[in-house]
Design a protein around this nucleic acid. Sequence first.
DNA 1: CGGGTTATTGATGGTGTTCAAGGGGTGTGG
DNA 2: CCACACCCCTTGAACACCATCAATAACCCG
Lengths: 256, 256
Amino acid sequence: MTVVLDAAGIMIDREVDLTMAGGCVSAESCRSVCATCRVRLFAVCAAMSEHDIAELERLSHHVEVAPRTPLFLAGDPAQSVYTVTSGALRLQRDLADGRRQVIGFAMPGDFIGLSPDTTYNFSADALIQTTLCRFERSRFMTLSRARQGLLERLHVHATHELSIAQEHMVVLGRRRAEERVAAFLLSWRKRLARVNGASATVPLPMGRQDIADHLGLTIETVSRILARWMRERIILDVPGGVRVLDQERLADIVAD
Amino acid sequence: MTVVLDAAGIMIDREVDLTMAGGCVSAESCRSVCATCRVRLFAVCAAMSEHDIAELERLSHHVEVAPRTPLFLAGDPAQSVYTVTSGALRLQRDLADGRRQVIGFAMPGDFIGLSPDTTYNFSADALIQTTLCRFERSRFMTLSRARQGLLERLHVHATHELSIAQEHMVVLGRRRAEERVAAFLLSWRKRLARVNGASATVPLPMGRQDIADHLGLTIETVSRILARWMRERIILDVPGGVRVLDQERLADIVAD
DNA sequence: CGGGTTATTGATGGTGTTCAAGGGGTGTGG
DNA sequence: CCACACCCCTTGAACACCATCAATAACCCG
């Protein structure tokens, strides 16, 4: 990672990314290798015995998704579930007239694809080059039935996701534009910390429009708020993301 | 249930409610009786064997909550989980400055109280007289570990809740005020149908402020929209709720 | 009947949207 | 290497939706 100085003379990380590639980089049907998996410790497959991991590995398939490419679409038969091993995805629901709601972003360690239905109820698109561990849904559920720990971990995961969703409802329903953007920046940064370690530099692989669609705002509003924060030296523009200069101010804006 | 005619000569149900009481109505420590439980078929305890139900029943406690009384508060130690057997509750998160977000309403058959944390991350208040089946959390989770079906059902439930939460994000993030109210009325009516059977009469045990705080609107906006719909004969004012006269129009307003 | 709470209705205003134009980076082809 | 196109982002000006403020009305329960 190259380090350079910006116009203001502040040291910044020139390149920020979410890449944590590992395992084979070949085509679809290749097995994933759990032993070298860098997200294993916090993915749903964590805390499984060596024997169980081996069984899980036998069900796994390595998947690569190019930037701006869908992994699956809302309405598709929900045949697979995935663990993200590197990259980032945008999860969204669409209205008939084109309005979009980005319900979340997935990053390494996240588990996606579960649906109460036989079809996915949201779409998933890769924001950058992304690798995943794919499991056939029915087989995965069968295994989770046999391996107590897995189902339990799955349930803990779902409960956690639900809590995040509820927190986001508060943001969407009761927060002003500036609070929404601040809440997003801080929570995204916090989630990244688990994967990349804590850093003031926050990669934003999603576009402004994606952030706007996540926060129930327009791209103009998001742009204006970020521009103001840059003028006020609360954040710094970094290619591919921002650098948080004044975490305190952001925390004050959210103030919950 | 008394039936009368309103000013327009339309037959309406004068009383609408969610009461489905059954079992003992006494104090805290009384057991619940699954055999006579009216929500058993669609609660998390459904699809359990007679033997397992008996075991579950041994863990259960009957709880009564009076209208406008909290069942638990956000931040309380999450010691219990509950199945609602009658009545209705409001689930909400609060911001420091008094803003509220009602993240949902619970009705008979619903399962509440699970948290990814050791404390509840939202508050639950009874809207009307409410009865619940209480389980000590740790014991319930222990049993669910021993009884495959229960944990699985719990997970299905969590996944379903997550999907509902995601749909509500779309409502909060991307829908206009009128669409929000229409979406709420229709979805609330649909949920009620599972418990009370389909009916054009929709009880609204929550107040206008609760609806507003659920939809990210103000009480005035909700009031104005409902008033307009009453003038336009899309709905009819009924004590304790509304009667849907023109479901089509409401569906058109949502139009997704 | 009276006090308090909740809901309705009207007038005004603000936050964020919409509409519109311009800037900046990147990739491609001449 | 520059020209051009394209996409995304930024910035400005006008507007609209819904919030806010305020007053009244309906309701509930004592």
